[in-house]
C-alpha cells in the first residue's frame, strides 16, 4: 500500500454518514442506478478486498466530477476511492468499447468538427444510428451529444490573432476540448474579455486534460493528468 492509498483508506473512518455528498451529487440526482457517493465510496469500500471480486458495480456510474469531495464536511476522499474502485472493475473485466469511444473524446471532436460538422451532427442525432450505437457500443441512444462546431477555436484564433501589443501582461489560455471542438464561442468571449482587459493571449500546445480518460477508467489517477496535458 503506497502513501496515497493509505490516506484513502484512513479517510474512510472520517465518514460520519451524513449524506451531504449524496445531496450534492449530480448523478444521484438524476438516477437511482447510482445510490450516491456515500454508498459506493466509503461504505462499499469496506467490502472491497484485494483477493476478492468487486461486490457491486454501481460505482461505475460515478462521473468523477469531485463535487462530493468539495462538499464533504469531514474530508473523505470519495472521488479518489471511486476512481480506484472503478479501476478495479476494469482490471477484472477489461475496458468496454464504449469507454474507449467516449474516453478518447478529443479524437471524435477532431473528426467531427470543421466543415463536415453538419453531417457529423446529423449522424449523432439520427435515431437509427443511435440505436445501432446502443446495441453495438453500449452508448445510450437517449444520451445527448454536444454539437460539433463548423470551425475549431484554434483555427479561429490563428486567423484572429493580432500582432503582439507591447503589454507585458500575458495569459496562457488552456481552452480544453469542449471549447475547441464544440463551443468555440466560449473561447472567443474569453479572448475578448482578456484582450479588453489588456492581456495578450497565448495558446500553448495542448492535448486532452485527461478527465474523459479518467472517467472512462482508461487511465489511473496518477498518470492521467500528468502525461497527457
Amino acid at each position: 500500500m503506497d502513501h496515497i492509498e493509505l490516506s484513502l483508506v484512513q479517510s474512510l473512518d472520517h465518514c460520519i454518514k451524513c449524506n451531504i455528498c449524496t445531496s450534492a451529487c449530480p448523478v444521484a440526482a438524476v438516477t437511482d442506478k447510482f445510490p450516491g457517493p456515500k454508498y459506493v465510496g466509503p461504505q462499499a469500500q469496506r467490502f472491497r478486498m484485494d483477493s476478492q471480486p468487486t461486490p457491486d458495480d454501481s460505482v461505475d456510474y460515478c462521473s468523477g466530477c469531485r463535487v462530493c469531495n468539495q462538499v464533504c464536511p469531514t474530508g473523505v476522499r470519495i472521488a479518489e476511492l471511486n476512481a480506484r474502485a472503478r479501476a478495479q472493475i476494469v482490471k477484472e473485466r477489461g475496458v468496454p468499447v464504449r469507454n474507449r469511444l467516449l474516453g478518447y473524446s478529443w479524437l471524435a471532436g477532431a473528426a467531427g468538427s470543421g466543415p463536415q460538422a453538419p453531417l457529423a451532427n446529423f449522424a449523432m442525432q439520427n435515431p437509427l444510428l443511435r440505436q445501432i450505437g446502443e446495441r453495438v457500443f453500449g452508448v445510450a441512444r437517449k444520451g445527448p451529444f454536444p454539437s460539433f462546431s463548423r470551425y475549431t477555436f484554434r483555427s479561429w484564433f490563428k486567423k484572429h490573432h493580432k500582432a503582439r501589443t507591447n503589454t507585458r501582461r500575458q495569459v496562457v489560455y488552456f481552452h480544453g476540448c469542449s471549447t475547441n471542438y464544440y463551443e468555440p464561442r466560449i473561447g472567443k468571449v474569453t479572448v475578448a474579455v482578456l484582450e479588453r482587459n489588456g492581456f495578450d493571449v497565448i495558446l500553448a500546445k495542448q492535448g486532452c486534460c485527461g478527465l474523459p480518460l479518467l472517467s472512462m477508467v482508461l487511465s489511473t489517477m496518477q498518470n492521467a493528468t500528468t502525461t497527457i496535458t
Partner: peptide, 9 residues
C-alpha cells in the same frame, strides 16, 4: 471552507 458546514446537520 473544507466543505459544507454543520448547517446541513
Amino acid at each position: 471552507a473544507k466543505g459544507h458546514g454543520t448547517t446541513h446537520w
